[in-house]
Design a protein around this nucleic acid. Structure first.
Lengths: 333, 333
DNA sequence: TTGAAAGCGCTAACAC
DNA sequence: GTGTTAGCGCTTTCAA
């Protein structure tokens, strides 16, 4: 590997000057700069960013912990990547595998690499740990989660509003007997979405009927179980709102198996708008989770806090919105 | 940030000794080690891996260029990540956005960071550039692509065999009038898959009928166009093989719109086995692209070539296999 | 506008 | 087993 020293010798200048042209310092005479650039080109010089980082004490990279490298969170990462790239920052991505040990070791590794800042998409790390982390000097933003003590570090979705929107879409079509298949109710997003549902009912003066609620676990299978349970219990409903698209997909299948047409007999709304929701039959009406926007917002936060780019407009809670497709129709067919 | 020096002072040893315990050198007396570890803990010491890399001339990280951070390639990355992580290596992921400029600048950035090796999933970079790159000292493996001149660096899928398997699955069910919706035929994988199709026909003594072939572009819409075109031309066929799942999904929709039942009237096979193929109605029978395995293999290659771990079994061309679901049935219903 | 030189935090001989 | 010391390739004062 050719070094700055070799370049400086070829160009007959000091290595400090070479460094200056590398970093586009203004104070280099055009003539000198040309000389140096020629030398760099001739030698095929490539600055060693490891050495740059060590000397300058900044890496120009932000660490990103994601639960998995596949799945819909990729969109969020790409949102971040897009805005960081525009600012000439790079992302060092590590996976947390939804378990505390890996999440912590990922954070640890990123700190060792002296990332300038972190974007954390965690699922198992405790609030305490993060509150502690916030006391250290490395800025980080928490994505998809809110911890009140460090609220400013959090970027999240308004799940309550999303739940409200989903049920309201049904109500607006005249539905009044609405079943609800919830996600795991020990998870805050599942709870909030359900509360949104209740709010929509209340607003429309529809009595809340607990027996129309089924607690699933966000997996496809619990969607089918939900429908089967409700049907076996003899419940009447013309629509079902689901805590996410996976369960909605299960619900649609179960409804079809039970001889009920979607949406003519029963309307179905999902939540998240993951890729396959557009491939279901019927194409799923759902609530769009603004993945990309959240990723972008996280990156903006970083640019703002860690790289003092104050031109960034920040927003901590993002709103979902309704995507109307084919799985909902007027009550009564 | 606390440094090795501070630790060494607290522990009353030299920084060399601290370095030895960090790196688990055997030659440290247990007693000394304890002392050092206590000091590290007390100070909350975290080794600076930037400095480690500079001094040792290795980063323990492999650069990974992926077309996008979302979509099915995530599975491939996670395959690589899994095996690298087990070897205590990290991945620095960058995106190429399927265009030459970004791909090259991603590679460049990874080289500047002195990655020990690279895994390249490229879509636009020329063979020449890569052949040139191979002459430099940084080992890299090309994923999903084969360049004869540097064949050893390539890990790819046997697309021909996949195409063969897909059509054979149809033939085995008694189909003889088989339409084919191909991907963009300037892409090698599309060509190879089509050739596999032809081979299956030949093997079964079915005359190849060019008019049963439609050239799509790997997008959903070209699947529907393919079916419409074939139907409008009055073609008869009891089955359709598609160059990928997206087109298969389009085809199924178009068939349904035309009043044809899948699979009773027309069977459909896809290719890739992407996530949504399992959510289609009917669930798609398809050829499984071994994403994860390819990613794992790439990582093994790296471990073998860049980190001299010779225990790795290498394989350059991986085989797809048939996933039987619900979109194919016997000819004649 | 440029050069000299002191680090950045660590590793790796080499010596003891 | 442990310490000394010279770098690793760059940035960044400080002078000139």
């Amino acid at each position: 590997m050719v070094t700055i020293k070799q370049v400086s010798e070829l160009a007959k200048v000091s290595s400090a000057t070479v460094s200056r042209v590398i970093n586009n310092a203004d104070s280099v005479k055009l003539e000198t700069r040309k000389l140096v650039e020629a030398a760099m080109k001739e030698l095929g010089y490539r600055p060693n960013s490891i050495a740059q980082s060590l000397a300058s004490n900044k890496t120009n990279t932000v660490g990103y912990v994601v639960p998995q490298l596949y799945g819909s969170f990729g969109i969020m990462m790409s949102g971040s990547e897009e805005v960081l790239r525009r600012a000439n920052k790079h992302m060092f991505i590590m996976t947390g595998h939804s378990n505390e040990k890996d999440e912590k070791s990922a954070i640890e590794a990123l700190l060792m690499r002296r990332c300038d800042a972190l974007i954390l998409h965690l699922e198992s790390t405790s609030d305490e740990y993060l509150i502690e982390l916030a006391k250290q000097k490395v800025p980080f933003v928490l994505v998809n989660r809110v911890i009140e003590a460090i609220e400013d570090n959090c970027i999240s979705l308004d799940n309550h509003f999303g739940g409200y929107l989903a049920s309201k879409a049904l109500i607006d079509k005249g539905h009044r007997d609405i079943a609800y298949i919830a996600g795991s109710l020990w998870k805050s997003d599942a709870i909030e979405r359900l509360q949104g549902h209740k709010e929509a009912l209340a607003e429309a003066n529809i009595a809340y009927d607990e027996s129309l609620i089924y607690e699933g676990d966000f997996q496809v299978h619990s969607g089918v179980e939900g429908i089967e349970t409700l049907l076996n219990a003899g419940k009447k409903f013309s629509a079902v709102a689901c805590g996410n698209d996976e369960m909605a997909s299960g619900a649609i299948g179960a409804l079809r198996d039970a001889g009920l047409k979607v949406p003519e007999s029963v309307s179905v709304v999902g939540f998240d708008d993951v890729e396959f929701s557009n491939y279901l039959t019927p194409r799923l009406t759902t609530i769009r989770y603004p993945m990309k926007e959240i990723g972008q917002m996280a990156a903006r936060w970083i640019l703002n806090r860690a790289y003092e780019n104050s031109s960034m407009q920040l927003q901590h809670v993002l709103s979902p919105h309704l995507i109307e497709r084919e799985s909902v129709c007027d009550a009564g067919g």
